[in-house]
């Protein structure tokens, strides 16, 4: 095990999340011996530190916030997801939320690590100087990615909401139903996560717009359209939720759908300079790279 190798660290972190997910699910049905009760949570914390170290090492390697390819962006979103969970857990004692977050990290983390093309070494290309030369752009990217982490957590909460709702509507005890959080608390949590996520995304958009107005040549029309559409989408969702025009299961389904679109949009857009600099490399998802 090489604790200085980014890929190895990320694989171990994903493995920790996987074990945590399995133990968390088992824990819903079988009681653990005293002392092992917190195992799933401890594994999430270990995975989070390993993920943090991996992103830190990659950051040193690329001389900036590591958001240059699909793997980095996905891992950064998952890192934000776990960070948001850990913060939320302080005020909201929900172990099963951690299990669901670990499950999401296992799924998306394995996918990003399994696709070799997603980790193209753009920083080794000829002429590469630094991913983000402007600290404001770095702030924009990290804010945006953190908001994606919150939206990922929102999608996780919405999945839990739909699972609880389905179990209640089926009028049967169900496998997870009794262990999932109450439906009203999930709805309130989803609303708050959406509000905080939209705030972070809006801040990111403000910072990004400042850069765009000064250097419009670096931002492609596609990227501009997709990111604006996504931002407006979340704003509309928040507005509809606040005015009680969208709530319950339809609201939950929209939050999941919008996050899926957000994930897909990462691979649909790329900045102009990136294409020029790495024309020899496979097309990379660059939605948030505003260079």
């Amino acid at each position: 095990m090489n604790l200085n190798d980014v890929t190895s660290l990320l694989w171990i972190a994903t493995f920790c999340f996987g074990i945590s997910f399995v133990l968390g699910m088992v824990k819903t049905r079988h009681s653990f011996p005293y002392g092992l009760q917190e195992c799933p949570f401890i594994l999430i914390v270990i995975g989070f530190f390993l993920q943090t170290r991996a992103l830190y090492l990659r950051g040193i390697e690329v001389h900036g916030c590591p958001l240059g390819n699909g793997l980095e962006r996905t891992q950064f979103i998952l890192w934000s997801l776990i960070l948001a969970f850990l913060l939320l857990r302080l005020v909201w004692q929900l172990n099963l939320l951690g299990t669901f977050c670990a499950g999401a990290s296992l799924l998306l983390g394995s996918l990003s690590l399994g696709l070799k093309d997603w980790d193209a070494p753009y920083w080794k290309a000829e002429g590469y100087t630094r991913l983000f030369q402007d600290p404001w752009i770095e702030l924009h990217a990290s804010l945006a990615i953190f908001s994606y982490g919150l939206f990922c957590l929102l999608a996780v909460v919405s999945i839990m909401y739909l699972s609880q709702r389905q179990t209640l509507l089926s009028r049967k005890p169900g496998f997870l139903g009794p262990f999932l959080p109450p439906i009203q608390e999930l709805e309130v949590a989803a609303f708050r996560l959406l509000a905080v996520g939209v705030t972070f995304l809006s801040l990111s958009m403000v910072v990004g717009t400042m850069h765009w107005t000064r250097h419009p040549e670096f931002v492609s029309q596609t990227k501009l359209a997709v990111t604006s559409a996504l931002w407006i989408g979340y704003l509309v969702l928040l507005g509809m939720r606040m005015s009680n025009r969208l709530y319950g299961s339809r609201f939950a389904k929209w939050t999941i759908a919008l996050f899926a679109i957000a994930l897909l949009s990462l691979s649909l857009v790329s900045s102009k300079q990136k294409k020029q600099a790495f024309h020899a490399l496979p097309l990379q998802p660059l939605a948030l790279n505003l260079r």
Partner: peptide
């Protein structure tokens, strides 16, 4: 009551 807990907390 258990069902109410799962709905309202």
């Amino acid at each position: 009551c258990e069902l109410a807990r799962r709905i309202f907390g």
